[in-house]
Every structure is written in C-alpha cells, then in structure tokens.
Design a protein around this nucleic acid. Structure first.
Lengths: 212, 212
DNA sequence: CTTTGTGAACAGATTCACAGCG
DNA sequence: CGCTGTGAATCTGTTCACAAAG
C-alpha cells in the first residue's frame, strides 16, 4: 500500500498513463478498465494493473478505475499537486522553443527562469520573464526556488552548468546537450539526445539485414 | 561475427558509444579500452564489452579497441555510412529549432524537407529548403527519398500525419507530439515527450521519499 | 459475471568471473 | 601479464493465470 519501491520502468510509464487518463476525462469517460488504458497507452492490461499496483489499490473489481480519482492519485505520486518550478539554462533555438511551449502548464510544469551567457540575449523579455545572466545562476535558483533545471547550452558548457546547478542545490536535471553528465549520487538526470534517437531509428532501417 | 540479434537496450547505447569514441578521436587517443569507454559513457566495462560483442569482435586482447576502426564499425552498424534523409513535419517552434540544429550533419543526419499545414508558413525559405505544404507529403517523401520522419505537429494532428507517412512508405518515425502513435508492424517509432520526462524527474523529487 | 490485484512462471538484461588470446 | 569476449549466475522486468472482491 505505501509507496515502497516503484521500479524505474514503471515510473517511466506513469506520465503516459496520466496523459491517457486526462484524455479519457475530456472524453467524459467516468470509469476505465485496464484494457482500455492499455489500448490508449499502447501496452497490455497486465502491465497497467501491475504498474498501478505499485502505487496502491485504486481500482474496483468488476468495474475498473475511476478516471478522476486515478488522475489525482497519479498526480500526487508524480509530485504534481503543485506546479514544479523549472529553469531553462540556454536560450538558443531549443531553449526558446521550450520556453514558449504551451503544454508545460497543463502538465504540472512552470518555467520560472531563463538564463543564458550571451550578453546579446541577457535582458530579452520573454512572456513575463527576462533572460538572466548565467553568472547569477545560483542567485536565480535560490530566488525562484527552482526544482528542475533544463540544460540547453552547447555540449562544451553542459558539464560546468550541471556542476553549478548541483552546487546550487538542484537535484533534477534534464540535459539536451549530447554529453553524459557526471553528477553526484542523489541527483537525477534525464538525457535527451535527438540525433541519438534518430541514429537508433537508423539502425532499424539498416539494409544489412541479411548477412555480412 | 554476423549481426544476429542485438538486444534493444544495446542498440539504445550504441549512439552514446559512438559519441564517446568520436570525442576520444578528437582528443587524439588512438586506442581505448572498455574501462575508458565505460567512464566516458557512464556505464561499466562489462556492459561495454558485452554490447560491442553483439556486433562482432573489434578489440585486441591485451590492448583495447582501435578508436577509428571502432567508429567505422559502429557507424556501419547504425546505418550511418551515408547521411540519413530526414523530413521534419511541423514547422512550429520545435520544428524550426530542429531544422536549424547544427549537430545533425556531424551525426549522420540530413534534413531534406520541412512541411507544415499553415499557409502562412508554406513557402518560407529555410537554409537551402522551402517549407512545403503538408498536403503534398506523399510527393515530398518520394521526391526526397525520405527515410526518417520527425513529427512536430500538434497532438491532435499527429496520428493522421503518421498514417500518411506510413502509407507513403516511411518506416522510422520520431514523434514529439504527446500521443501514443498507432503504427503497423515493421514501423519503428521513438517517442519524445519533454513534459513527460520532467514529470519523471518530478517523481524523484517527491517529498514522500521518506521510507514508510 | 466482470475486472482487479498478485504470486508464480517466464523472458530479458546486467554483472560476474575467468578462459583464451595477443 | 592485460584486456577482450563470453558462458554462467544474478537481477529486473514482463506476462500469465487465477483467487478474491464487488
């Protein structure tokens, strides 16, 4: 019953389930069963039930899961009862695309700071924010109570930015720079590498599906 | 010897190894051993050796791996001996950020087409390309011999775009829209969901981490 | 009668540890 | 000797199948 140990693979699927349930909610479905969730999520029903069982017992046998109540449970387990405070470090093409992404708010994320090292970019007003100097990173993190940092700086600068973020108390980093970050125990890093993903796709296209 | 069956988890790490080796090459290291690769990649040496062993026997016992030769082998196995032809469908903030990303070329990817449904965007010149009408998707895919498609359209349009891409012969899709795409057997999809990744990070920040 | 929740069986990935080769 | 390559052992995740609950 208590959230003892949730397997990493299960955690990775929770946002997907949440998305599907929100969609079901907008379609005015009051209740869904594990087969329906699995169809929407592209998995199988046993997986869905097992995953949810790690968080608690939320279903009703013979009926299924109450959509709104399950949304509430998942949101709580994902720590999304309040919006998470996100800083974007690096206001290049990708950084500005993320800053302007409308999908964050409805999924529990709030961008509270944008930073860059380029004097030409510092001071630019974006929505209600201003691009701030990366030199004042520590002050900004403290002032805005940043919980999650998104790194969109060039690869060469990523590790030093990560070091400073960690020193400033950040424990959750999403890194778009194509380098493996070194962080101390207790700091969680998610790596996003678009070119790498395309290379994985390329592997599956490989002509060499016969023999060498 | 022959590339029989490479486990999916291994395939996912190959781009990472390739990146590390390219870095080693620029640092003028002619040879690296599995411990060094593991350090750069953030894994362990046994993992590196096992992964590489699925592709063949590239090392020299007592010495290690020749960097340039291993880069060549990995590139070949990833199908990167020639640049992969990529189309970006959806010229919004994210689509344009990806279109302008300089990192693709050096990692075997070449953007050969950009499409959008918005008449205000169709015709815009981007580098050597022009944003084309999504209505002519099939013609563009054929003309440019597109191998990989990147979907950056709104969630509501993603499935129909995917259906048309598959019908046009595309077998590798990277999807940035936050929906689970349904595709037939034989079509490979990689899902990228930034908000979902941040939610995973949020889970790890959860206050409820105190053992119950 | 339906659907959950879950032990047990299974499948897959990681790590170990060492034989084999340079 | 040093380092790779790999079977064997271990660990982790997925799927099955059914008892328990409404």
């Amino acid at each position: 019953m208590a959230p003892a140990k949730v397997p990493p693979t299960t955690v990775q699927r929770l946002p997907l389930y949440l998305r599907c349930l929100v969609q079901a909610s907008t379609h005015h479905m009051p209740v869904v069963n594990s087969v329906q969730i699995a169809e929407m999520a592209g998995t199988n029903a046993a997986q869905v039930r097992k995953d949810l069982s790690y968080l608690g017992e939320f279903g009703t046998r013979g009926i299924g899961y109450d959509v709104d109540s399950l949304i509430a449970h998942l949101s709580r387990h994902l720590g999304l009862t309040e919006h998470r405070r996100v800083a974007i470090v690096g206001y290049g093409r990708l950084g500005s695309a993320l800053q302007g992404y409308q999908g964050f708010a409805e999924r529990g994320m709030r961008v509270v700071a944008v930073l860059d090292a380029d004097p030409a970019k510092i001071g630019i007003a974006v929505d209600a924010l201003t691009v701030e100097d990366i030199e004042s990173l520590e002050a900004v993190v403290a002032r805005e109570r940043v919980e999650i940092a998104v790194i969109t700086v060039p690869a060469a600068a990523a590790q030093s930015v990560a070091d400073r973020l960690v020193a400033a108390g950040i424990r959750a980093i999403m890194n778009f720079a194509p380098v493996a970050l070194r962080v101390p125990e207790g700091v969680e890093v998610r790596q996003a590498d678009v070119a790498g993903e395309l290379q994985i796709l390329s592997f599956h296209l490989h002509p060499e599906r016969t023999r060498v």
